[in-house]
């Protein structure tokens, strides 16, 4: 269970961008592997599917796609690992997960139903206040 990620510790710095990149993929895989656990401990079945969670993790990582410095990537990886640990250890509560990762990300979720229409309509679907 959680043991797979529990004993991650700070690894030495990545020597090159390629190595940092490999580590990112490793991290992504670890995260994907813990998704079933996360679904279970936070009772997420009725709000989100594993594949959605996967794309949420992916989009979190892609947010920083422009970063090229291995040092910075290492730092962010460390933070990501820490976050993942907290989640897997149940140090968070359900609303943390929902609020941070599940709700309010319609943009990333229905990429298929991309909004056509004016600025007004886009704002309207987002909230009443604009």
């Amino acid at each position: 269970m959680a043991s797979s990620v529990k004993y991650l510790r700070v690894p030495p710095n990545s020597a090159s961008l390629a190595e940092a990149r490999r580590r990112v993929f490793e991290f992504f895989k670890t995260a994907c592997r813990s998704i079933p656990t996360i679904m279970e401990i936070y009772h997420l079945d009725d709000v989100v599917t594993p594949s959605q969670l996967r794309s949420i993790v992916a989009s979190e990582i892609r947010k920083n796609a422009q970063v090229t410095s291995p040092k910075v990537i290492d730092m962010m990886l460390f933070k990501g690992t820490e976050e993942l640990n907290l989640i897997v250890e149940h140090s968070k509560q359900r609303h943390h997960i929902l609020g941070q990762y599940v709700l309010g990300r319609e943009d990333s979720q229905d990429i298929g139903t991309k909004e056509q229409g004016s600025e007004f309509l886009k704002n309207f679907f987002r909230s009443n206040y604009f």
């Binding site: 229409g117 004016s118 007004f120 309509l121 309207f124 679907f125 009443n128």
Partner: peptide
């Protein structure tokens, strides 16, 4: 603030008109 996911009346009609 508004309750739940509600919107101002005129905005609803404006959005509907565009849809």
């Amino acid at each position: 603030p508004t309750v739940g996911d509600s919107r101002d009346d005129w905005k609803i009609i404006r959005a509907l008109s565009e849809v």
